[in-house]
Nucleic acid binder design. Structure first.
Lengths: 130, 130
DNA sequence: TACTGCTATGTGTATTATGCATATAGAAGT
DNA sequence: ACTTCTATATGCATAATACACATAGCAGTA
């Protein structure tokens, strides 16, 4: 088993399940956009891994199936046709609900860290862990 | 499709993947314990859903397979025999790595909420909210 | 004795999320 | 012709998770 600190960090990544959904919904709340555009937008966000195209496009289709976004084809402009998504009223409602739950999750994480720090009475570990 | 706010909240729960792992490791860092004991401890934690026994016991076995905990049978005392787990050195290392990644995740969630609030121009909810 | 309930540890299985590889294709530059 | 960038997808293997169910010791009590 591996003890390299870098790999240990990799092995216990802390992912929020389905987090790409509210991120997409928030981008679309700012303005309608097509998938490739959203991929670049999410890819530029601080400390987020670059999104997987497969997951992103699949998620958009799933959001549309659930009525949270709707899409139209944009054949104008240069390059291949783009499927442009926009937020629906229900999508906005979901975004707000996500925000509420994200706050609750942050509270749980804070609670964990408080317990953790109480146990080890340590300074905050840095990203390079040691 | 449903518009009941309560159900909307349910549908976009915000789960941290594998979060039961660091919670178990932290409990075991405090003191060795058996599964049932850990279930009660996690069940009492603030705002966390009561853990599923199947998931909990399976996770403990998986942690042992990976060398993060070790177990011994405790046949003393009343009731059925208990498998008592204790943290290994490597388990402690993983717990620290989890803490680092949890902080990174919190930073990402904060970044999302900042963007969200910027978009909708809302105040952060306070205790005396409204 | 039989029954009930609490303690304690598990398995079976279906669903969902995710990452990685791969496919398709228009358009623009060299 | 070729490469590169833009753009949208599918296929598949693995992993996480929830929910139901199985097993069994032990204690109290009717």
């Amino acid at each position: 088993m591996c003890h390299d600190p870098q790999e240990v960090l990799e092995n216990c990544r802390c992912h929020v399940r389905g987090f790409i959904q509210p991120r997409l919904l928030l981008q679309l709340a700012k303005k309608p956009a097509h998938g490739y555009e959203l991929m670049e937008a999410l890819g530029e966000e601080n400390d987020h891994p670059t999104p997987d195209p497969g997951t992103l496009y699949r998620t958009l289709r799933q959001l549309e199936e659930e009525g949270l976004v709707r899409s139209t084809w944009d054949t104008g402009g240069t390059g291949p046709a783009r499927r442009v998504y926009e937020l629906t009223d229900q999508g906005l409602e979901y975004l707000h609900a996500w925000a509420v739950n994200i706050r609750r999750t942050m509270a749980r994480l804070e609670h964990f860290l408080a317990q953790y720090e109480g146990q080890f009475d340590k300074e905050k570990p840095t990203i390079e862990a040691r």
